[in-house]
Computed example of a mutant assay.
Amino acid sequence: MFELESPKYFYLLVLIPLVAVFFLFNLYWKRKQQAAFADMELFQKLSPEQSVFKPVLKLVIVLLAILCVVIALVNPKMGTKMETVKRQGIDIVFAIDISKSMLAEDIAPSRLEKTKQLVSQIINQLGNDRVGIVGYAGSAYPVLPMTTDYSIAKMYLQSMNTNMVSSQGTAFNDAIKLSVDYFDIKDTSKLIILVSDGEDHGDGANEAIEMAQEKGVRILTIGVGSEKGALIPLKDNSGKITSYKKDQNGENVITKLYPDVLQNIANKTKSKYIVGSNTKEVVEEVKKALDKIEKSEFESQQIADFESQYQWFLAFGFLLLLADLFLLEKKTSWVQKLNLFNEKKHE
């Protein structure tokens, strides 16, 4: 297996066609100047040692050298060995509300997008912790199992939307139960970070909270939205608002933040409730909460021995450039004797 450390440097490959175009232009200009000086047969007599093939060879060498240097900058890393490593951290499940109310835009750009920003920034602050993701609305949906691969976690996070769960509403009971079931290791410290606007259309979360308490799972809650409330926009594929969500009586639905519900869940599991309006403050508060939780040792498998391979490409590129310096454009005597290109004319 392999990975690329800095793929952004691939844009430098544009130098290859640019150098090739410059070479062709320069060759055309030289031919034009030579034609103005003398015809080709006379010019060959005046410069019998001038090789037609060598300039092309030098160009190929320079282009290969550029390719090698670019690959060296990208720094491919190779690793094929799977090994079990021991880590110290916390098992964290992000339970994310993906009900329609999360489309409200009382917090920019929307409650759901703000949630993604918050969770992504929290993940960026983690070290050796394992993370999982659960999405929920009227029912809960497993999005990502426990992993230490944060890049994968953030990729799955960004793909979340309100269409992932068919039944609408918000059921904390199902969300917490599914999140608790994610914790497969008994002796690790366990934390659920539940992000929502606090609207609960289910049967309440008391049963699930008791289940979390029995298994030593804390639930940190983050409230996203405003207590004043907002309409729920419905948009077309281009992102333009076409209408607003209505209730059974045809009235516009106003969705609000219910902090008391979220505060209650956090208090019952000896954790805390955080207002999710300021990303920096949320991340700092979560970090403080994580620092107070005892880290547990657990095992995880990962690809080991990922080693940088840039030095091979850099060395080969240097050798090519060195060869280009010593490669003259005059004909090589021993190649002339072979007459590979039928350059000798028979009298």
Rank of each mutant, 00 (worst) to 15 (best):
226 S>K: 14
267 N>K: 15
263 Q>N: 10
302 Q>W: 08
233 P>E: 02
290 L>P: 07
261 V>Q: 10
309 Q>W: 09
302 Q>R: 14
296 S>V: 09
237 N>H: 12
308 S>A: 13
278 N>V: 09
265 I>A: 03
230 A>E: 08
287 K>V: 04
277 S>F: 10
262 L>C: 00
226 S>V: 03
300 S>E: 15
251 E>P: 01
284 E>R: 10
244 Y>W: 06
305 D>Y: 09
242 T>Y: 08
229 G>E: 03
259 P>L: 05
300 S>W: 14
222 I>G: 05
273 Y>M: 04
262 L>W: 09
298 F>C: 00
220 L>Y: 05
267 N>Q: 15
283 V>P: 07
299 E>G: 01
269 T>W: 01
227 E>M: 13
283 V>H: 04
269 T>I: 11
225 G>N: 08
281 E>R: 13
256 K>Q: 13
246 K>P: 07
307 E>I: 15
280 K>C: 04
249 N>S: 08
259 P>M: 02
282 V>W: 10
220 L>K: 01
285 E>W: 09
279 T>D: 11
246 K>G: 00
220 L>W: 11
300 S>Y: 15
271 S>V: 10
280 K>F: 06
259 P>K: 00
281 E>Q: 15
282 V>F: 08
227 E>K: 11
270 K>C: 02
250 G>Q: 00
259 P>W: 07
277 S>R: 14
273 Y>C: 03
218 R>M: 11
255 T>Q: 02
298 F>H: 05
223 G>M: 06
266 A>I: 08
290 L>N: 10
272 K>F: 12
224 V>D: 07
243 S>M: 03
225 G>Q: 10
256 K>S: 10
223 G>K: 07
300 S>T: 15
219 I>M: 03
260 D>M: 01
286 V>A: 04
229 G>H: 00
220 L>G: 02
271 S>E: 04
223 G>F: 00
247 D>N: 01
304 A>V: 13
246 K>Y: 01
240 K>E: 13
274 I>E: 05
265 I>V: 05
218 R>N: 12
216 G>M: 05
239 G>Y: 13
271 S>W: 08
270 K>M: 08
283 V>L: 03
309 Q>F: 11
306 F>Y: 15
283 V>E: 06
267 N>V: 12
281 E>L: 12
301 Q>D: 12
303 I>S: 03
229 G>T: 11
305 D>P: 08
266 A>G: 03
273 Y>K: 05
252 N>H: 03
253 V>P: 01
261 V>C: 01
293 I>M: 11
301 Q>L: 07
245 K>L: 15
288 K>N: 13
270 K>T: 11
236 D>Q: 02
264 N>W: 13
254 I>G: 02
230 A>H: 09
233 P>L: 03
291 D>A: 14
275 V>D: 14
222 I>E: 09
276 G>R: 01
251 E>Q: 13
307 E>G: 12
256 K>I: 11
284 E>V: 11
298 F>R: 07
285 E>G: 02
304 A>W: 02
265 I>K: 03
294 E>P: 01
244 Y>I: 11
225 G>Y: 09
288 K>V: 07
265 I>Y: 08
271 S>G: 04
267 N>L: 15
304 A>C: 02
222 I>A: 03
234 L>D: 04
215 K>V: 05
274 I>P: 00
282 V>P: 05
270 K>E: 14
302 Q>N: 09
238 S>V: 08
251 E>L: 04
287 K>C: 01
